[in-house]
Amino acid sequence: MSTNTIISLKDIVVEFDGERVLEGLDLDIHDKEFVTFLGPSGCGKTTTLRIIGGFVAPKNGDVFFEGKRINDLPPYKRQVNTVFQRYALFPHLNVFENVAFGLKIQKLPEKEIRTRVLEMLELVNLKGFENRGVNQLSGGQQQRVAIARALVNHPKVLLLDEPLGALDLKLRKEMQIELKKIQQSLGITFIYVTHDQEEALTMSDTVVVMKDGDIQQIGTPEDIYNEPKNAFVADFIGESNIVPGIMKKDFLVEFAGRDFECVDSGFTPMEQVDVVVRPEDIKVVPTIAGHITGIVENVTFKGVHFEMEVLACGTHWLIHSTQSQAVGASIGMQIGPEDIHIMHKMEE
């Protein structure tokens, strides 16, 4: 991964009708990276993308592209292209004309336009669809046209605004893999907006988790998943058991009525903390062998594993296990030191 910064946002503030959408956002995006803005709706991720695209002017702060301030550059002069939510294809043009649109604006010779469009349609698996009307295409095909239309201009950065949101699950998975492949083969920067954590984790080099116009955490998917910085990130990135605890000293935490060894350190002794345990990290064992004992309240089969709700020490725990237990049964729960993540309490 190259370390040179291609886009840099400095202290960006955005207000809509007096309501703050972004609060002093700072962010550097590196060249050739697959960056994902992840967060619930209303967190400011799409707004951030639109600032880079040039469709939203920040009230305060600067946008830099390759070191040059581009705040006042209109969208049609920026070297970035966008794949819009629900595609925004030109309904009056066919597939070829849609993809060729940007090149025609640049007044390239017909011949070059033709080669580049066909090349691009081949890349997105739409060879032979040139003369179709865009309304005759399926959602997945329209999606590919939208991607081709943006990429054919050889942008240095491609912005994708929830591009897979309208597709069904199976198609989404296929497109995720395909998009990642395209990004790697073209070697350009992708900035991807989604509210789907799984999508973010599978595709990205870097994930930017956002909430209420603020960045919560920036890191690789592994970092974000394994070392969430706070309860919001932990909760948003997959299902988690988050319970209050007390950090007794380095490598020792008390929660659920007993002490656990852990791998975290650097907290003030006796600090109130949040303890995160992933559902798949809790091992189900006979009651005598468990750290905690609980009663199974509910079991749901989820395809590859069983999801169990277990009441233990006054808390409902979520456990994923490949073996089912009877409802009402007493079970033991074992949690290893490396499965425990300690986080500072979030100030609300």
């Binding site: 695209g53 966008t82 925004a88």
Partner: peptide, 8 residues
């Protein structure tokens, strides 16, 4: 916006 984005 898509048209602007594509340089129009």
């Amino acid at each position: 916006e898509a048209a602007q984005d594509l340089g129009a």
